[in-house]
Design a protein around this nucleic acid. Sequence first.
DNA 1: CATGAATGAGAATTCATTCAT
DNA 2: CATGAATGAATTCTCATTCAT
Lengths: 200, 200, 200, 200
Amino acid sequence: MGRPSNTEQRRADILEAMLEVVAREGYRGATVAAVAQEAGLNPGLLHYHFKKKLEIVVALLERLAAAVEARAERKLRRAGDDPQARLLAYVDAHVALGKGADPRGVAAWVAIGAEAVREPEVAAVFQAAVEERLARLEAHFAAVRAARGERRAGSRSDAAATLAAIEGAYRLSAAAPDALPKGFAAPALRRMVLGLLGEA
Amino acid sequence: MGRPSNTEQRRADILEAMLEVVAREGYRGATVAAVAQEAGLNPGLLHYHFKKKLEIVVALLERLAAAVEARAERKLRRAGDDPQARLLAYVDAHVALGKGADPRGVAAWVAIGAEAVREPEVAAVFQAAVEERLARLEAHFAAVRAARGERRAGSRSDAAATLAAIEGAYRLSAAAPDALPKGFAAPALRRMVLGLLGEA
Amino acid sequence: MGRPSNTEQRRADILEAMLEVVAREGYRGATVAAVAQEAGLNPGLLHYHFKKKLEIVVALLERLAAAVEARAERKLRRAGDDPQARLLAYVDAHVALGKGADPRGVAAWVAIGAEAVREPEVAAVFQAAVEERLARLEAHFAAVRAARGERRAGSRSDAAATLAAIEGAYRLSAAAPDALPKGFAAPALRRMVLGLLGEA
Amino acid sequence: MGRPSNTEQRRADILEAMLEVVAREGYRGATVAAVAQEAGLNPGLLHYHFKKKLEIVVALLERLAAAVEARAERKLRRAGDDPQARLLAYVDAHVALGKGADPRGVAAWVAIGAEAVREPEVAAVFQAAVEERLARLEAHFAAVRAARGERRAGSRSDAAATLAAIEGAYRLSAAAPDALPKGFAAPALRRMVLGLLGEA
DNA sequence: CATGAATGAGAATTCATTCAT
DNA sequence: CATGAATGAATTCTCATTCAT
């Protein structure tokens, strides 16, 4: 009895529309009205399903971060046991094109990430994602070194530099896609990581 | 004769104020009123010296890009003739801390860069800077390979990956400074570049 | 035969919720959504039982006015025949604390009363209540004077002043309860009424 | 040089418009747009001179409270030394009609006062006014008793009851002016006060 | 009767830009 | 050049009310 709830679907619709608009128009272009229009919904309805606009943005950011990590998880499951192969697979999952690549997600991630300066709630999500990725990368670097019988010192810095290269690839591909060789990131990142490991 | 024009000084004051405010509050926080207050001027005067706000932003972005290239030039002049040393010096000039480092510039660069999606004028400046840096990096990579008697193929991708790592270091240091080891970028980038060159 | 109507109960529930919310949050805080939540119902249902929000407000105001008059009736029935005792009992019924006192009703009465300026339907109920109380007070004053063999002139003004003191006690207790001595109103009003009657 | 400031005048204009609109339409009718229109100004300009709407409301409330006290001061200066005469003059200043009476001020005071439940800033101003008036009334009552050689006990409650009668007179005259005898308040209040003093 | 989503008309506020002085 | 008020177009958010299920 009573009307069945469609909240979950609607929230997903709204996130999808926010993703599309942010990717296309940037954060400033992603007004409530624009998102509503993109979703084919009434602007007021967005505030029925999300208390405020920032909640939509934060939810989207969380979704994007989770999607990338899930993709990495999948790649890792097929990566075998070799620590170095696993490290490279993890990195590859974050930058590779091809199936599962998500240019809109990258653009939105970059656009919303810039709001972290102003919006503590965005900063919190962004930093949590950074922390998680850093921790995983560090563990992968450390595992490689452990397998080689080396000291693990420097794994944190290596993780940070690797994550920087990943984020930078996002940024460049969002801001100046035409200047970049197609698909440069994945193979180059692989060699950079090997460089960090002192491997030619 | 009337009072001497102070336009150039005023324009510089305004750029400086825009830099400060953007670095501190992000692009969205950099309202004309906030910039005017920071500069100790008043809003109307900003529009006397710049036709519109975007002009200030673009001028600042150009100034920031030029400053980094100038810094790289200085470092290169002291770097000697070895192509690899010159490549590393160029990269180092973009990420090293210490004298000449400009955290506000980095923060503003990141914040304004996100506007490139929305503002073609910003995108143009940003892309021009990317192109210039890519071209220089590519030339440096090619020079190293030439000196070794290797083929230059891949230098463009190496340049793109290196620039990505630089931009990513900016981005992370702006968005999640506490998560990163202090001064990780310069030494790690050096090893990454060597990795790209197939050097351990 | 369908389920038995619970309309009367529901309407009472809604009035009760409106009372609670208005008393706690003021008229502006008494949104349909807030009242619905307080009642454990949902917004749509409120509009099933009342055509519009103002109807709820008006019904509540009527209920509050009636409750106070009923309380006065009870007090009067126990007050005996002496006109002065009856006048004082009537006044006392409106301001005394203790059993039957209704601080929420007072707060709601004050909050809704301010809407009389804007809403003719509220004004009508409010004015009707004022008229009724004035008439009763006037009659009581006149009865006292008649029993003394005095002329009844001035009873209307005395009634108005007495009602003003009652309403003002409501208002102050709603707006600045901490500034007031506890229970000041009933004994002071008694002396004020006696003052109006020229009695020390 | 530069444009001369007219802020003080504009702020006064805006307060005047707010007073007019609140008195006429109640608090809910006093939207920024309505006030701006009343003042013949652009809505945005109101936010140039006042940071937010509530600031206008609070400033108006302060102005109204100060005006009444100033009026009382003037009356007191002409009231001589007799404590009882001074007490009655103080009360009279708050309710009398005639020159200096301010029906719009009364209406606005009542309308805005109801917002004290929801707006702490309004509550603060309202309560401060209540405290001040209570303190003055209490001092006047105490002075009368002291002059008679009586104990001062009860002066606080007498003050509260008197202030209640004053506020209630405002309230009734705002909400049901037609039901009230013209000019009932001042003479009736005088007798009420005498009643509180145990005087016939 | 009941549920809860959907609508649409405002509301306050912000801000780049213009303009009178 | 400088000042600061004025303009007007957005923008986010609220809320009574309607409506499909």
